[in-house]
């Protein structure tokens, strides 16, 4: 494949691209400011910044707040009550059911973020001329 073709492919993906989200200035819509700070702290404890970006840099809190803003009431209740019960990651981890829910959404949010993808060393979702895994 020619470079020109690759650019055409990537260009086509830009059709109707949504606006860039501004996570630093985002005001939570589901959580209160206090809950939102706690969410940020607990997700960062789950996925810390330690040489590669952590949950805070990835914007995981934005993703989770937005998902819950549109979620059904039972999921909203589970998250609100789950967060209210725990102050530390140790306490959260002892609550097996909620911890599992918490991890799954936090990991989804992290893996889909540009910063999280740096941790995974992921360079995909792009155009390459040939698929050639090195083993």
């Amino acid at each position: 494949m020619e470079r020109r073709e690759l650019l055409a492919i990537l260009g086509s993906a830009a059709v109707a691209a949504p606006a860039k989200v501004d996570i630093a200035n985002y005001k939570p819509r589901f959580f209160s400011e206090t809950e939102y700070s706690k969410l940020d702290r607990l997700t960062e404890a789950l996925i810390p910044s330690d040489g590669t970006p952590g949950a805070h840099e990835a914007g995981v809190r934005y993703y989770i707040d937005t998902v819950l803003h549109y979620a059904d009431p039972s999921a909203q209740r589970m998250w609100r009550e789950g967060l209210a019960k725990h102050e530390t990651i140790e306490q959260l981890a002892a609550d097996a059911t909620f911890f599992r829910t918490f991890k799954f959404l936090a990991v989804e949010a992290y893996a889909l973020s540009a910063e999280g993808q740096k941790h995974f060393g992921y360079k995909g979702n792009t155009a390459i001329p040939e698929f050639k895994p090195r083993c």
């Binding site: 059709v15 860039k20 993703y63 937005t66 549109y70």
Partner: peptide, 22 residues
């Protein structure tokens, strides 16, 4: 459906999230 517009898996997930859920 128009490929790349009505479906566009290359979009940045964070930028697309709110619009899709809404």
């Amino acid at each position: 459906l128009r490929p790349g517009a009505d479906y566009n898996a290359h979009a940045n997930p964070y930028d697309a999230l709110d619009r899709r859920l809404s």
